[in-house]
Design a binder for these strands. Structure first.
Length: 912
RNA sequence: GCCGAGGUGGCGGAAUUGGUAGACGCGCAGGUCUCAAAAACCUGUGGGCCUCAAAGCUCAUGAGGGUUCGAUUCCCUCCCUCGGCACCA
């Protein structure tokens, strides 16, 4: 049979779907989860369906992650690459609100469309292991985690001023407030005093921080640093100052000290005032004391004259007004006022025990109630804010540090403030000491004198978990008037989210579930009496804090026997924990122990850096807690994390509000998924993202077309070389030993280029340098195109194998066309995607002749070819260089002062 | 203000133990094929000078200094863009 001379036209839509069906049918991307030998858990952050569908930004992230998965699979790993939908929570609910559909209905529609797109991009997903966070089988366990948090004392209720989004009508975690705006809807966030559920993530602050320094914690630096900054560890001291008044007959107050946290006690000789946050407890002490003169307590009952004087000193009304005003101010109002310092004097003084000065105590809104002790000792000479405050209230400013500029004059301008480094002055026993040394000395001093205590503070605060919304996992707690808060018994989980007609948020401070009395009314699990269910739902980020544990075990029946099957040699805490637990359903876990052991922690996690202090921190916290409760035996969920860049369009981040969202579907229909995938990976470094352009994708389509025709030219028109090497389906692509050596220079060149390309592409893929990997493949293709008659089977195989992770459909099509296999003959192992990655042999990288640069005084004047064997010998190269007419011209009449020789690279004559 | 990432042709971007700046692609220009177009293919493509041409010279990696035989790369000062945090004591 003679092959037709014309290659079929390159039409991706004619074969892409066919191969996706084949992959799925044959289970090409379904590893044996129970007994895989070389497990590689390749995970990408799952999407939340909060729009019409995936945009190219999502596709960029998924494709980049998928290329790693495909590469690792070809390297011989059993790659598990699951995908699912983070469909519970406020993102999806807001979208449902927007389109005016019930979230449950919308979820079905979104799921269908998202999964259609996720198929269409051609990733090696394990589609048998999908999960959706709104599935009761899933959120049952989200609730179970909540119950465990409660049982272990990590879930608690607290009343505090919280971030409230008036548009989403719910409270938000600190991590979800960006510049005072709601992370989701960009509305102005208000402060509201509410009682809510919190998770004690702060208990893990130190571990969350310390683990980021471990060698094994291989994360993108920017995310590591971002987490460290967010945790914000500070070592300092709490100093207690006695409180006094100017009056001769001071009233007694309790407490009679003020505690201030500071990291810079070295400057305390320069402390001249104390400032309190409006929320500070002492403020209430004052207000209660003097609100009504009759309420002055007995022990403080004063002579009328004294009382009057005290009331004059302490302007109660002014204080009250200031505090109320401060508390009602929104973040935005504060910013709008600039950084102008305001405050009110309390009438009380704190005694600086170093100088015996009476430091006036003020209330000011620049001190934050939740930071440190909510009270700050003011050192106006060496802190910008303290300086501004002192200026505003005419308080004394004392210099106690001399900076490197040596300026010892009085501090009157902001530029004179030394904060970072310097030497102590005007500080008695600290004089002349470096500030860091002085800090240690003074800390010891305070501790010894009994008026200070070293402390470690963190910026990280507890995770507010309650949301006054409908579309989330109901918080599985019951409030009994007799027994207090009780968790829903584990065998009664899930607490199903009821179908609610009236599900829209109202902003009353309660979630929509509160309106459903059949849901609210329940029995106390402890005493059996009438009780009420919690009606708030969990934050979405709890859903996604453990999903990676679930994926590998999605299809596992929860049989108690898989817990008891442990061998005696298995001494892990986890095993003992499992088998010593009580009977019944509570024994079950949402993950299979053996599978979890095999696959977790996640080998490679890939996602956006925007989750640095959100999902990535929460998932680490939940994993640590599960480890401490002995449900798993590792404490870090993601061994490696790679933060990809963002795709921008029209110069801005893709977002619905900007209207610059690019939908991949049209491009897939026009150019095929392969062209879009390869284009996205080519447009810039994967960690930097890039700007999406139509013209670029057309160019990539042309490139793939060139590859298509190149491969068909070999399939259809056998050349002399090809006939000499007729074993069309040999499995030795890239195996260096399979190469004949004809000795012709062109043959050698092509072979060298191939090995060089394999080397470069392999190294690039190891480091997520997809753009340069593609560039190298392109150069290889250009070389092949220029030497059509010299192409061998191995060139084509190597080319297809290297291109396979990027263009999985087309390479699969060409692979089988090349091997003349028929679709119906194919089994799983025929797939190019399970073929071993090509290897290179360094010995074929060596060139006969190398290019050397000849410089005169550091400027390149000539480029010569020289035998590789001689390129490392200075005499030879120098001799050769001096025969060059051009170089002679430069050297004539000059003296060579020095010759710099870099073997194999250049020679430089320094002349004068 | 602090932390992080960047600044290279018309555009996206290559190039690192300091050694040919601009790989690869887009775009553009010219050409081949065609009645024509599309597609495809070929050639050229940083600026300036010089030349009929070839060759050559010269400038150029945000700005300015420095180290070096040699700097996109290292050091100092500064400017700009993007991302994150932000009155955090």
């Amino acid at each position: 049979m003679k092959p037709e001379k014309q290659s079929p036209s390159f039409n991706p839509t004619s074969f892409e779907q066919k191969w996706r069906q084949y992959w799925e049918k044959q289970g090409v991307y379904q590893p044996d989860l129970k007994s895989a030998k070389k497990p590689y858990y390749n995970l990408m952050m799952f999407p939340y369906p909060s729009a019409e569908g995936l945009h190219v930004g999502n596709m960029y992230a998924f494709t980049g992650a998928d290329i790693n998965g495909r590469y690792q699979r070809m390297k011989g790993f059993d790659v598990f690459e699951p995908i699912g939908l983070d469909g519970f929570g406020i993102h999806s609910e807001n979208y449902a609100l927007k389109v005016g559909r019930h979230p449950k209905e919308q979820a079905k529609i979104s799921a269908k469309n998202y999964y259609r797109q996720l198929h269409a991009i051609g990733n090696g997903f394990a589609f048998k292991n999908t999960l959706e966070t709104y599935d009761p089988d899933y959120y049952r366990w989200t609730q179970w985690i909540f119950v465990q948090m409660f049982k272990h004392g990590l879930a608690y209720r607290k009343k505090s001023p919280l971030n409230f989004c008036p548009s989403c009508k719910t409270v938000l975690a600190d991590e979800q407030v960006i510049n005072g705006l709601c992370e989701r809807c960009k509305s102005q966030v208000e402060k509201r005093e509410m009682e809510q559920w919190f998770f004690k993530i702060t208990d893990y602050a130190e571990k969350l921080l310390q683990n980021t320094f471990k060698q094994s914690f291989q994360w993108s630096d920017k995310v590591k640093i971002g987490q460290r900054n967010w945790i914000g560890k500070k070592e300092g001291i709490i100093i207690n100052y006695s409180i006094t008044q100017l009056s001769n007959n001071p009233i007694t107050i309790t407490p009679n000290t003020i505690s201030c946290f500071t990291t810079r006690p070295d400057t305390n000789f320069g402390a001249t005032f104390v400032v309190l946050a409006p929320e500070h407890p002492f403020v209430n002490v004052i207000l209660n004391l003097f609100q009504d003169p009759k309420k002055i307590p007995d022990q403080a009952r004063l002579a009328e004259a004294t009382a009057k004087r005290v009331r004059n000193d302490i302007k109660v009304k002014e204080i009250k007004d200031y505090v109320e005003r401060a508390k009602s101010k929104s973040e935005m109002d504060r910013i709008a006022e600039g950084r102008k310092k305001t405050g009110v004097f309390t009438g009380f003084y704190a005694i600086n025990q170093l100088t015996n000065n009476k430091m006036p105590i003020y209330i000011t809104d620049f001190v934050l109630g939740h930071v440190g002790t909510g009270a700050v000792v003011g050192v106006p000479g060496h802190d910008l804010r303290d300086f501004q405050f002192a200026k505003e209230f005419n308080l004394p400013i004392i210099r106690v540090v001399v900076g490197k500029d040596g300026d010892k004059t009085e501090i009157t301008r902001e530029e004179q403030i030394q904060e970072e480094e310097g030497t102590m002055i005007n500080s008695s026993f600290l004089d002349g000491k470096d500030i860091h040394e002085a800090t240690k000395i003074i800390m010891d001093y305070f501790v010894e004198k009994g008026c200070g205590k070293r402390v470690i503070e963190y910026k990280l605060r507890d995770w507010c978990i309650s949301r006054q919304r409908y579309w989330g996992a109901p918080i599985p707690m019951i409030n009994c008037p007799v027994c207090g808060w009780q968790p829903v018994p584990e065998d009664q989980l899930p607490v199903l989210l009821p179908d609610l007609e009236d599900w829209k948020p109202e902003g009353t401070g309660k979630g929509p579930l509160a309106k459903l009395s059949s849901f609210v009314k329940t029995k106390c699990p402890k005493c059996g009496g009438e009780a009420k269910r919690e009606t708030d739902v969990c934050d979405t980020f709890l859903d996604s804090s453990w999903y990676f544990l679930r994926y590998p075990s999605v299809n596992i029946e929860h049989k108690t026997k898989n817990i008891e099957q442990k061998s005696d040699t298995d001494t892990s805490e986890v095993a003992r924990r499992d088998s010593s637990d009580g009977g019944g359903i509570s024994k079950q876990l949402p993950w299979d122990h053996e599978i979890t052991r095999r696959w977790l922690p996640v080998t490679q996690y890939i996602g956006g850096a925007e989750h640095t202090v959100l999902h990535l921190l929460y998932a680490r916290f939940v994993t640590m807690a599960l480890k401490d409760w002995r449900y798993i035996d590792f404490e870090e969920p993601f061994s490696r994390f790679y933060a990809h860049g963002l795709i921008i369009a029209e110069g801005a981040k893709m977002s619905k509000s900007r209207g610059n969202v690019v939908i991949p579907d049209v491009y897939i229909a026009k150019y095929g998924a392969d062209a879009l995938r390869t284009y996205l990976m080519f447009l810039g470094p994967f960690d930097q993202g890039g700007d999406f352009r139509d013209t670029g994708i057309a160019g990539m389509y042309r490139f793939l077309g060139r590859v298509w025709r190149l491969v068909f030219s070999v399939i259809l028109i056998p050349t002399a070389s090809r006939e000499k090497n007729p074993d069309r389906i040999s499995e030795n692509a890239g195996d260096p030993s399979s190469f004949r050596n004809t000795g012709t220079p062109q043959d050698d060149t092509l072979r060298r280029v191939m090995h060089h390309t394999i080397k470069e592409v392999t190294e690039d893929l190891e480091n997520f340098r997809y753009n340069t990997a593609i560039a190298h493949i392109m150069e290889f293709v250009n070389q092949l195109t220029d030497n059509l008659q010299l192409i061998t089977n191995n060139h084509i195989k190597s080319l297809l194998l290297m291109l396979a992770p990027f263009a999985p459909h087309m390479t699969e099509e060409l692979w089988h066309k090349f091997h003349l296999t028929k679709l119906e003959q194919l089994d799983k192992l025929s797939s190019i995607h399970l073929h071993p990655w090509p290897l290179y042999d360094p010995k074929y990288l060596v060139e006969e002749e190398v290019t050397m640069v000849i410089q005169v005084n550091g400027k390149t004047r000539e480029i010569i070819k020289i035998q590789n064997s001689e390129s490392g010998i200075q005499n030879k190269v120098e001799e050769e260089a001096k025969t060059s007419e051009k170089i002679k011209k430069y050297l004539v009449g000059m003296t060579i002062r020095k010759v710099i020789f870099v073997p194999g690279r250049l020679i430089n004559f320094v002349i004068s």
